[in-house]
Computed example of a mutant assay.
Amino acid sequence: MNLVHVLLRRGFLVTIITPEESNYFNQTEEGVRFVPLKKLNRRSTNPWYDLQLIIELYTIYRQVKPDLVLQYTVKPNIFGGFAAGLLGIPSIAAVTGLGYAFLHKGAVQQITKILYRLSGKFHRKIIFENQDDLALFQQLGIIQTEKGMAVKGCGVDARHFAPIHIPEVNKNTVFTFIGRLLYDKGIREFAEASKEIQKKYPDTECWIIGDPDPGNPASVKDNDLKTWTDEKTIIYHGPKSDIRELVGLSSCIVLPSYREGLPKVILEAMSMAKPVITTNTPGCREAVNDGGNGFLAAAKSTDSLVNAMERFILLPDDDKIKMGMTGRQMILEIFEDQIIANQLADVIEQESAEYQ
């Protein structure tokens, strides 16, 4: 909602179109109108549902008559782009990550590329969360060079995710994975690395926070999660609406993902002055300097992840603290949500002015 607050301060009237189950729906904000979106089915590949989404967005846009539409995530970016284009309404697409379709070759990937290319003709700007995704879309000819730009993710509330002091219950090193339980996020490598690192450093604890995403083909299978917890190499905390206490109890946050937009969990960990281990992949490496505020490992490599975890364990305590504070400073200077919101608002203001 930070971008919304910035836009309100700049004199915009804002309409938020979102599913009713969204956390944002029906929040009380003066100057903000909420419209329910009922036909968004992010898990379906059925063209009939996608056509219904185009019709619904077309109907809403025609009724609301916005001066400009900002769309997030794959289906609104694509099908909202078509709907806005049919009505002659300028639109901006915010690509928060390329997701499953771009990680797995096949028909879905090819269709997604074609749809992005077609809908991209209607967008005034396409905003990415990292330079790698922007470069890929330009290289593949999906977007025109002048339409693309990148910002540093969606930012993080540095006041909400502030460093907290929690009296240590024990001195064990705690590595924590936070996120949807997807194989594409490297959770299998994390579980395997946890098993290996505990052979050499038996006092090390490895935690997982999050839940599976059954609609995603890459979702972790129940029997895998059960095996990891039964082996007692993993402590599974389940999903948490507020992760701050567990982050505070963690020594290092680990996200061995195969590709991201710019993972919010990394930014939240950095904001709380926690070192981060992630992969040298698009999106992940955008926020982590190897040896500075964390360590980078190779994607899909348990051995590389074990090596990064051991490098962290062997650091002197003062260096671990310094690493965490380096990440916190990066948030305040580069990734703080007010900074990102103002950058996005500048683009919206510019495109709105050109349209009028």
Rank of each mutant, 00 (worst) to 15 (best):
R117P: 08
L182R: 01
V14G: 08
S301T: 07
P167I: 09
A299R: 01
T59I: 06
R285E: 11
L296R: 01
A308T: 04
R33A: 13
V108C: 03
P19K: 10
S257E: 04
E349C: 05
Q138C: 14
G261S: 07
H165Y: 13
K65A: 11
F79S: 05
W48V: 14
T204A: 15
Y100Q: 12
D303A: 15
P76L: 03
K274H: 02
D337G: 03
E129P: 05
D157F: 02
V276T: 09
V288D: 02
I92M: 07
V14K: 11
T59Q: 13
E20D: 01
G11N: 07
D50V: 15
L115D: 03
E336I: 05
N41H: 12
Y100G: 12
L57S: 01
R43M: 11
H237N: 08
F25G: 02
T112G: 06
R42Q: 14
K221Y: 09
S241R: 06
N172D: 14
I253G: 02
N170D: 13
G324S: 02
K105F: 14
G80D: 03
S241D: 13
G292R: 04
E245T: 15
T28H: 13
E260R: 06
I277Q: 01
P167W: 09
V220T: 09
G283P: 05
V174W: 05
A193C: 11
P239G: 10
E310H: 03
I17K: 03
P66L: 11
P316V: 01
C154S: 15
P36F: 14
Q138F: 07
D222Y: 12
D133R: 05
T278N: 00
P202L: 01
F12A: 12
E196G: 06
R117G: 05
A93K: 06
E196T: 13
S251A: 14
K147T: 07
V247K: 01
M325R: 12
P282A: 10
V254Q: 06
G81L: 06
A308M: 07
W228V: 05
N77V: 07
A308V: 02
R259T: 03
Y72M: 07
K221C: 15
T204Y: 06
G283C: 08
Y116C: 02
A162M: 07
K185D: 04
H123Q: 13
